[in-house]
Simulated scan of single mutants.
Amino acid sequence: MKELSNRAFIYDIFSDIFYYKLDDDSYKEMLEKIKVAKEVFEPLSEVFELLNTKQKKDYLIEYTTLFLTGIGVKPLTPVESKRLYTLMGEKVALFKLNDIIKFYKAYKLRPKMGDFFQPEADHISSIMAFMSFLISKEDEGDQRAIMDERNFFISHVYGWIPDWANDVIVDDRSEIFKSVCKALNEWINVEKDRLGVSN
């Protein structure tokens, strides 16, 4: 795989991991993708080994406990506007959500309907999927995607996900997602340097 394809693939993997997997086939498909991805991005090896020793129900229980119940020392909802609403108030949360929607509309993207799990436009799964999409557009030669990729990364990845991931890592209920979030933070650091984003 070429570098752009590899990058799109890794973002796609993280999108998959944070997309609540209810059926067996999509869960098995995710495991197969991680098995391939760990050859491209070594920190995913620990994630693969851990998931390989667990059952799907362990993944679903931990996902629900951490991300869907809203209880714990800190709310860990993996949705940018909901996190920012708690930390900075409604005005900032709405601004960020509307900004994400503008990015999607610029590429004529709409939410996929019909699944049991419908992630919000600013759910981490949606954000990772959009980064994968932008890199794929860059790979096709879309020059607009290059600038949008960097701007979207700064505004909607680097701006909140590392802090949120650190909250997941230190949560006592986290085992699978502790490993996932460690790998995610490593990936974000690689991308930060690649995209020339300063601290």
Rank of each mutant, 00 (worst) to 15 (best):
M1Q: 05
L4P: 05
R7S: 06
R7F: 00
I10M: 02
D12Q: 14
S15V: 07
I17C: 02
Y20A: 02
D23K: 04
D24T: 07
D24F: 03
S26I: 08
M30V: 04
K33G: 01
K35W: 03
E39R: 09
F41N: 04
E42M: 04
L44K: 03
S45Y: 13
E46Q: 13
V47S: 03
E49H: 10
T53D: 15
K56E: 13
K57W: 09
D58T: 00
Y63S: 03
T64V: 08
L68K: 08
L68G: 01
I71N: 07
V73W: 03
T77G: 05
L84F: 11
Y85C: 00
T86G: 05
E90R: 12
K91L: 12
V92I: 14
F95H: 06
K96N: 10
L97I: 06
D99M: 09
I100K: 01
K102F: 14
K105P: 00
K105W: 01
Y107T: 07
R110S: 12
M113N: 08
F116W: 11
F116D: 10
D122T: 04
D122H: 10
H123E: 04
S126G: 03
L134D: 06
K137L: 15
E138T: 15
D139I: 01
Q143G: 04
A145N: 07
I146L: 13
G159F: 04
G159Q: 06
N166F: 08
R173F: 00
R173S: 14
S174E: 07
E186C: 02
I188L: 00
N189V: 01
E191Q: 15
E191M: 15
D193S: 13
V197H: 07
V197N: 00
V197E: 08
N199P: 06
